[in-house]
Simulated assay, not measured.
Amino acid sequence: MSYSPAQRSPLSETENQEHSTESKYGERLIAEGTLITFPNPRIGRRYEIHITLPEFTCKCPFSGYPDFATIHLTYVPNQRVVELKALKLYINNYRDRYISHEESVNQILDDFIAACDPLEIRIKGDFLPRGNVHTVIEVNHHKEA
Rank of each mutant, 00 (worst) to 15 (best):
R45S: 13
P41R: 03
Y98K: 09
T57Q: 15
L11V: 07
Y94R: 00
E48M: 14
L84Y: 13
V133Y: 00
E138Q: 12
Q79E: 15
P54H: 14
D96I: 11
D111F: 06
E120K: 14
S2F: 12
F62T: 14
R45T: 14
F56R: 04
F62R: 12
R122P: 05
H134K: 07
D111W: 05
F38C: 12
I51N: 01
F56A: 05
Y25S: 14
Q17H: 12
I43C: 10
L87V: 04
C116H: 03
E15M: 06
S2G: 07
G125D: 06
L35R: 01
H101T: 04
E83H: 02
D126T: 03
H19S: 11
N132F: 09
E83F: 08
K143C: 06
T52N: 13
G125E: 02
P129I: 05
V139N: 10
R97V: 15
V105P: 01
I49W: 13
N93H: 05
C60N: 01
D111E: 13
A31S: 13
S12T: 15
P5C: 02
R28K: 14
G64W: 04
N106S: 04
T74K: 09
L128T: 12
V139S: 07
I123D: 00
F127G: 00
P54V: 05
L128C: 10
R122D: 04
V133N: 04
R46W: 01
R45M: 14
S9N: 07
Y98R: 05
Q7L: 08
P10L: 09
E144W: 12
V139F: 05
F112I: 01
I108Q: 07
Y75K: 04
K85D: 00
L87N: 03
C58R: 00
R97C: 10
I43V: 12
V81Y: 03
Y98E: 11
P10K: 07
S23T: 10
F62S: 15
